[in-house]
Design a binder for these strands. Sequence first.
DNA 1: GTGAAAGCGCTAACAG
DNA 2: CTGTTAGCGCTTTCAC
Lengths: 342, 342
Amino acid sequence: MASIKDVARRSGVSISTVSYVFTGKRSVKLETRIRVFEAARELGYFPNVGAQMLRNGRTHIIALSSPIHSYTNFTNYAAFFFEMVRAAHRHHFHVLLFAGEDEDEQFVRFADSNLVDGVVLLDVAWNDERIQRAKLASVPYVSIGMPMDSENLIAVDVDFEEVGRVAIDRLAESGHKEILFVGSDQSVDSKSKDVTESNYLHRITASIQAQARRRGITVHSVLTKGDDYSSVRCLLADTFDQHDEITGMITQTSIEFVNNAIGVLQLIGRPIPERTSIVSLASYGKTEMLPVQIDEMPLLPAAVCSKAMQLLIGALDGEAPRAGHIELLHPTYIDRGSIRRV
Amino acid sequence: MASIKDVARRSGVSISTVSYVFTGKRSVKLETRIRVFEAARELGYFPNVGAQMLRNGRTHIIALSSPIHSYTNFTNYAAFFFEMVRAAHRHHFHVLLFAGEDEDEQFVRFADSNLVDGVVLLDVAWNDERIQRAKLASVPYVSIGMPMDSENLIAVDVDFEEVGRVAIDRLAESGHKEILFVGSDQSVDSKSKDVTESNYLHRITASIQAQARRRGITVHSVLTKGDDYSSVRCLLADTFDQHDEITGMITQTSIEFVNNAIGVLQLIGRPIPERTSIVSLASYGKTEMLPVQIDEMPLLPAAVCSKAMQLLIGALDGEAPRAGHIELLHPTYIDRGSIRRV
DNA sequence: GTGAAAGCGCTAACAG
DNA sequence: CTGTTAGCGCTTTCAC
């Protein structure tokens, strides 16, 4: 494995010059620079990251902490992985993946060993154990998702309070009075006895209820365990049977649920959008490929991850305050005409 | 950040002793050992990985190269991520994630920079560009999936030839003569002009055809683009309309497809398993939660990743030959009674 | 059972 | 515009 010394010798310059050629932190005569690059190429030289880490005290690696819950939606998760990697690469950072049930113990081992410059917490639950550690850690943490105890924390997320509010407003403005809210059931993590809801369902639900009360609207809430056709049929058939008065629907579910709901509602004589108005919240996936165009307020993994990375870099550079920064992203409402005046 | 020096000073021993206490490569008096650990704990000391890398020439990090194709199934993908992380952690390795479309260029930058001790290639296509690089690289590569050019390569995968063979055999032995094969459409990657099929569909298809010919069975092949209810209904209704003689079905699709197929077949008067026999290949997901129990030959992400890690470690330790090792894992047939005698 | 010291590859301060 | 050199934190050989 060729080292900087070899390159220096071969190109007839000193090692510091080679270093400066590669870091670009000092101007080097073009001719020399070319000779150095040439030599490096010939020798197959790459700077040794270990040495750089040691010297610079920076690894340019972030940890992505991704616990698996019973309700974890892998599709959404993968989207965040990919977007996080993209965001990190844009800033020349690498991503170390920590995932799974045993995630916790692994975590302890590395978090302070200077392997990573910072940590991004994915899928932060309403009361997440990791938050305690975040506050004691020697490297900056950024939480994606807002936990209950968000004091003194760097966190990014879509503003789900606003999501709920806007969803209700849209339906209310079109005259809907009786609304069905369907959330995916993820109330209890199999492992812990605590209620560790994924934070955004919690926040959306609360904000929907509050806004509905404010506008004098009735919200019927149900949770769904399965997103397959027959589960959806049972759920919706039952609900609309008991509550014929429902005209609008808000879903916070997988895209499969929505897809099946389209079919079921058609079947029970309440087609979207003619007889049922609908908006899908916190969705991710190829929504535009559904047989019926559906309004949505999507998850924004790209925006969230990008912002998370920004905040992390800021904390590393000491530009931003190292803690206590909560950034709520403005949600997007995509109007596809699935809400009709009633 | 406390260093080994600080620990040495505080515990009144030399730095080499501290080092030996942590590596365990030399016996140290119990009393001393305790003093060292105590001091380390008090100072919050963790060995600096950068320095260890520099010194040992090993980073204990592997790269996981995960390109995104148009047909990428995120659920399956995430499963491999998680299993790979688990397998790596078992061997005290970390996992650096490389994912996305721009994956390639990123890849070049790091692959030889001593950041990783080895590379695992995920979702290797039938003719995958990454294979060339694998052969020239200075660190060992392990391919998950078999590319066309598998010469001189370390690769692990389920034996999909056997999967196809067994599926046909099972149906044949129950007297089925006319079989429908449904594959997920992933024939062409949107980005490249080449046909870059995910390798296993290619291999399953070929082996099914061959075995069917051998046993005098007719296989009708179709590809599916959508796995949602209406797509599935169209596809199956059409197919069974034209080929009333079909009694058996082999799917290599998402679990959603299978779920919808159960409903559709019921609807068109060909319920599983009474009138239609079925086996699902290369599946991953909560198959046992389907409304009808379905035979399957699942993907084995845990086994595959575990074996990949083993081979990688072998290559690193120079125990195994550094190249040319192809390991095909024996598939499992899970019999749930969805194949009936005809 | 323990310590002293060389050196891994790199960066950057200092010197020219 | 370029070179010399100290030192980052660790492991390991050699010496006791």
